[in-house]
Design a protein around this nucleic acid. Structure first.
Ligand SMILES: [Zn+2]
Ligand SMILES: [Zn+2]
Length: 730
DNA sequence: AGCACGCCGACT
DNA sequence: GTCGGCGTGCTC
């Protein structure tokens, strides 16, 4: 049998194919699939990953070049992860090189060496135990103090302890400390490493755990639907426990905003084992270290946001996606993957369970449960038998309003404050951003580059566009009519704030939005302050709906429901239902049930009625049957083609060309039509929506369209992207 | 995406 | 005469 002669290599470049190479010169063995190699590519050197060795190549051998160097002695990408990358490349019709590159932390992607995982540090020598440093040796004293209460100091905690390297070196010279090196060991995880919560499981939780244990480990997609406070996390922990005891690893994904110290602490308190936590402010070096620890099986629990899905593991036993409906699981640029969907694919490849947890599952996931593709686990009991929050609609037709708030809502807030409880006003309305308007001629501060108004930032004393970062000074006179009567308008949050202050001068008021919680610590501080207050008013945006619990809040006011009901985005109602349910679920506790008021012009709207009287689940069922009737996802498959160009007609023409290239195929192509924000940062934005009854039809059409696009599109002038299963259709 | 090659305007 | 503008084309 002839030897394989060629290497199929995924080179990290945006081309939708792999490249064939000859083996490196003067090397007898071919590098194994999954190995990184450095290859000549045009006139530069790039890092690629060997996909396969083959006996033939499409190109004549004299056109092929040799691999320059082999970068790994053993494959760095496992066969399962290679399958995942290949799957992604096919499903998202995305360049194979980029699909492989995303599997690796950035340093490895660039061709850097793997790091040595051994732990280097210092510990006291026998003679060092009673050493007293010189009076002026402050740094040494600091180190000595540290070793009074700690046996060891290593590279990782040296920085946090604030001890200088030179002091440590001097102490080594004095034979007070000696350096050590330790190979990290793969621990054997046993029951002794678990610290159970003093509260047992309720019968529902116990039933689910039993159900989990009743089957041998295999691919099992599970929807865990549990209302807020029903103990989803405890179920996660119990499942993880079983996986860890079987000697396997657990991978947990959380929403972007959910990777808080409290979340991490919850896992650390339960399990005595090495964890790899991928938070956003790790350095490349730290990220690589955790990645390798996970790959080597040293880290047993891996927690992170979207991209942590690609972490290599030694022996993965379960994947958990918390708040699976969360939009942050969808990558919004480049390779627009859904980490939730890929988790299911990875679980299938690895033959392990995957748990999608939410109080408000996405329609896609609910449909998968309905069609028996997923097991459907439910938690319906709230801990401590707390009564669920009640939701009430406020009809604002012909009602007197003050700064977005119906006057009839004010007594509710007053009553809530009187009871020494907190009220939360949730601003989900547009037009609340403050802008500048001319009282005489109606001129508004429009952004030069976008179809948007600039918002006024009083603190920074300038106008800013949220879509393109443009900044301009606040004019003293109207640029159109020279009038000096420039006034603020739509300063919604601030005006609402002052109105509330006026009506409730004694209640402390907290504003929670991106501006007031910008600092790292600010959010935590503010939350701590809020928890201390008996009565208070909280005013805020989206941020309020995620993660944080507000036990003292018993009244929630949602300013408007109408854009979700009447808008063009067919997903808006689903989102609104999730938002309301999440925010209401986070308010109140056992002895003080929450109450929510939703302001609307359409109090008789069927779907709103469903949500208010029967909850998210019934709304979701309604929406699903509506989607089925209309042939919308998940009952059809979509791809959104986006194109931005400086000239609107140019964008339209190009999209029409692309549309023509697939006009013979059995798919619907709607458009070209302008994006929600038609012009942004000097670019006109248009899009084309492809819709098919079968996944394969869609994939094929997108492939053809992409082939046409590569010939037509000038990267310098056009911004082009394909979004498979788009979530954000604007 | 990069990076080179190539063919026209305003510089020494 | 050449320096450099970015349009076009290719990467095993
Ligand atoms: Zn004016
Ligand atoms: Zn702008």
């Amino acid at each position: 049998m002839p030897h394989d002669l060629f290497l199929k290599i995924a080179v990290n470049c945006p081309l939708r194919r792999s490249f064939d190479y000859l083996p490196p010169k003067q090397v007898n063995e071919l590098p194994v699939p999954g190995t990184r190699v450095s290859v000549p590519f045009g006139n530069r050197k790039l890092t690629g990953i060997v996909i396969a060795t083959t006996a033939t190549s499409d190109l004549p051998a004299n056109k092929l070049r040799h691999v320059e160097t082999v970068l790994d002695s053993t494959p760095i990408v496992s066969t399962t992860m290679m399958q995942l990358a290949t799957w992604m490349s096919d499903y998202y019709q995305h360049p194979i090189g980029e699909c492989f590159a995303i599997l690796l932390p950035s340093l490895l992607r660039k061709g850097e060496k793997q790091v040595d995982l051994s732990e280097n540090g210092w510990q006291l020598t026998d003679s060092g135990k009673d050493f007293r440093p010189a009076a002026n040796a402050i740094q040494q004293q600091k180190a000595i103090d540290y070793f009074q209460s700690n046996a060891r100091l290593n590279d990782d905690n040296k920085g946090a302890a604030g001890i200088s390297l030179s002091a440590l070196k001097n102490l080594v010279k004095k034979d007070v400390l000696h350096p050590y090196t330790e190979q990290p060991a793969k621990m054997e995880f046993t029951a002794a490493h678990i610290h159970h919560s003093p509260f047992g499981l309720n019968t529902q939780q116990a039933g689910l755990i039993q159900r989990f244990e009743a089957q041998p480990p295999s691919f099992r997609p599970i929807l865990l639907e549990g209302i807020t406070g029903s103990g989803k996390t405890e179920v996660y922990l119990q499942l993880i426990e079983r996986v860890l005891l079987a000697g396997k690893q657990a991978l947990i994904l959380v929403p972007e905003i959910g990777l808080t110290p409290q979340t991490i602490a919850r896992f650390q308190k339960r399990f005595d084992c090495a964890m790899a936590v991928f938070h956003s402010n790790l350095t490349d070096q730290q990220r690589l270290r955790y990645w390798q620890q996970s790959q080597a099986g040293i880290a047993r629990i891996i927690i992170g946001t979207r991209s942590a899905l690609f972490t290599a593991t030694e022996d993965l036993g379960i994947i958990i996606i918390d708040e699976e409906h969360d939009l942050s699981y969808k990558q919004q640029d480049g390779l627009r993957y859904s980490a939730r969907d890929l988790a299911c694919v990875r679980a299938k490849i690895e033959q392990i369970p995957v748990v999608l947890g939410s109080a408000t599952p996405s329609l896609e996931t609910l449909n998968n449960a309905d069609t028996q593709k997923f097991e459907h686990w439910e938690l319906t009991e709230r801990a401590g038998n707390a009564s669920p929050a009640t939701v009430e609609l406020v009809d604002i037709r012909n009602q007197p309003m003050v700064d977005g708030l119906a006057e009839s809502v004010l007594p509710h807030i007053a009553h809530c404050l009187q009871q020494q409880q907190q009220a939360l006003v949730f601003i989900n309305r547009r037009g609340f951003a403050p802008m500048l308007i001319c009282h005489d001629c109606g001129w508004v501060s429009q952004c030069e580059a976008c179809d948007a108004r600039m918002t006024l930032h009083l603190r920074a004393q300038h106008l800013r566009c949220h879509h393109c970062q443009a900044v301009s000074p606040i004019p003293m006179q109207c640029p159109a009519c020279q009038s000096s009567e420039l006034v603020y308008q739509g300063a919604g949050t601030e005006r609402l704030e002052s109105t509330l202050k006026q009506h409730f001068p004694d209640a402390p008021l907290f504003r929670i939005d991106r501006d007031t919680t910008a600092g790292k610590q600010t959010m935590q501080n503010m939350l701590a302050q809020i928890h201390e207050q008996p009565s208070a008013i909280l005013v805020g945006t989206q941020m309020l709906a995620k993660g944080h619990h507000f036990p003292n809040v018993t009244l929630v006011v949602i300013l408007e429901a109408d854009s979700a009901l009447m808008g063009t985005d067919y997903r808006a109602t689903e989102r609104f239902g999730q938002l309301v349910t999440q925010i209401v679920g986070r308010a109140g506790r056992e002895e003080k049930p929450g109450h929510a008021l939703i302001q609307t012009h359409y109090p008789d709207h069927m779907q709103l009625q469903k949500l208010v009287h029967h909850g998210y689940r019934r709304l979701a069922m309604d929406l699903l049957s509506q989607r089925r009737e209309l042939g919308l996802p998940p009952f059809s498959f979509q791809a959104l083609i986006r194109l931005e160009a400086r000239d609107a007609q140019d964008a339209i023409n190009l999209l029409q060309h692309l549309q023509q290239s697939i006009s013979h195929l059995p798919i619907i192509a709607i458009g070209p039509y302008p994006a929600n924000l038609q012009r942004r940062a000097h670019y006109f934005r248009f899009q084309l929506m492809l819709q098919a009854h079968q996944r394969a039809q869609l994939k094929y059409a997108v492939g053809i369209l992409l082939d046409t696009a590569t010939a037509l599109i000038k990267p310098a002038q056009h911004r082009f992207s394909v979004d498979i299963d788009p979530q954000d259709v604007s």
